[in-house]
Write a protein that binds this DNA or RNA. Sequence first.
DNA 1: CGCCGATTTGATCGTGGTCAACAATAGTGG
DNA 2: CCACTATTGTTGACCACGATCAAATCGGCG
Lengths: 232, 232
Amino acid sequence: MSYCDTCVVRNRAICQALDDSEIQVLSTIGRRKVLSAGDPLIWEGDDSLLVANVIDGMLKLTNSTEDGREQIVGVVYPADFIGRPFGKTTNHSVTALTDARVCVFARSDFDRFAGDHPKLEHKLLQRTLEELDRTRSWMLLLARKSAEEKVATFLLEMSTRLRDATCSGPHDEPLDEFDLPFSRQQIGDILGVTIETVSRQMTRLKREGILDLPNRRSVKILDRDALEAMAG
Amino acid sequence: MSYCDTCVVRNRAICQALDDSEIQVLSTIGRRKVLSAGDPLIWEGDDSLLVANVIDGMLKLTNSTEDGREQIVGVVYPADFIGRPFGKTTNHSVTALTDARVCVFARSDFDRFAGDHPKLEHKLLQRTLEELDRTRSWMLLLARKSAEEKVATFLLEMSTRLRDATCSGPHDEPLDEFDLPFSRQQIGDILGVTIETVSRQMTRLKREGILDLPNRRSVKILDRDALEAMAG
DNA sequence: CGCCGATTTGATCGTGGTCAACAATAGTGG
DNA sequence: CCACTATTGTTGACCACGATCAAATCGGCG
């Protein structure tokens, strides 16, 4: 018996590639770690010492310039993998956005284990390819879209992301009412615009009757077609 | 004997993970394809039908909006891998920037072969992780850097990229004189700015004595320190 | 209720986009 | 080899979007 047996992401994280006896071995080299919102897990530029699976909570991956400008280059959710296996250094920081629990491994241990388990590497490869696809699509948004298009795209993306993460309810129809898991500042850091610009675009969408914003964090999409047309 | 035996990227492409007998098998499912500058190889949104290794030449990966704005999300060089294994669709286009030769595989054949050769998948995983790192770093540039910083960063990056690609000459000291393999339009598409902005920044750098621009394609870095300071 | 951080709103400014003209270079055929 | 054209790059004038700075307002929590 290992704590993996009761792990809520056992069948969604890369661990799904492993059978029970393999999991047993993996569990001996990993350990749980609890993070509070805002806690850093990995620093940009540091030696790559650990990798992890997210059990619950959300974390951000960021790159920064020396003068303090920050860009969120990725957001990870439960069952996602964090860290840079097979490499000496990590080039982005990882910080908890919410309280979170992760399952961490020393990178050297994980590298060795992965080398012996092709099915695990295969799963990791698939995930990395998917992440690369998502990241590349995001580049188009960052480089070419207007603030209006950025915010519209972001809201639509959240609507599907949150639907997929919802345990109950239909997964085939869009989710029109949800709570944003991000502050305005974080949304700005994701979209590459300032907090004021995010705010202005949101209120404009509300004024035009496309959205309702019952309170700071919640969003209700009233006219999805219009929003999609805006997303560019 | 297979044509792989004389392949110039045999020991640099992911094929390096395979021994001679394995290469023999791989060569039976691949074929050479010659592209002229401008030729498309894969279309954004299409079914993912093929993957390939670059033998020589350069190709661009692009994402576009419906109204025609284009962003280069990656550039691939000889020995790099192209395409989206283990996935149904590709979400970016691949187009030759120069005349090029590639070694293509039907995706289904490649997937099957890779599944049987963990060492190949391991190599591919390493490459994909490196590419993801590079891509994420580029996001910071696209989202947060000024035109000046973008152009300075680009020139410095080209200087190291081209040094690494140079067969002869020292690989430890920077390359200060080189020919850009891109048009102004392509540089703009990489940096997420217009062709006019690229041009203006370049002439400004020349006016300030940081660069010399003997002709359209060539660049000579006169003051690397200043350029690095500008890159942010 | 009063405080503090988050968000909204307003006013102003600067960077880089757009449109247009011009220059330089490469390519083509007499 | 030189006109002629097409393509690529440069420069200028102007403007819009989004950044910046500043103030007002909201909302959660002691």
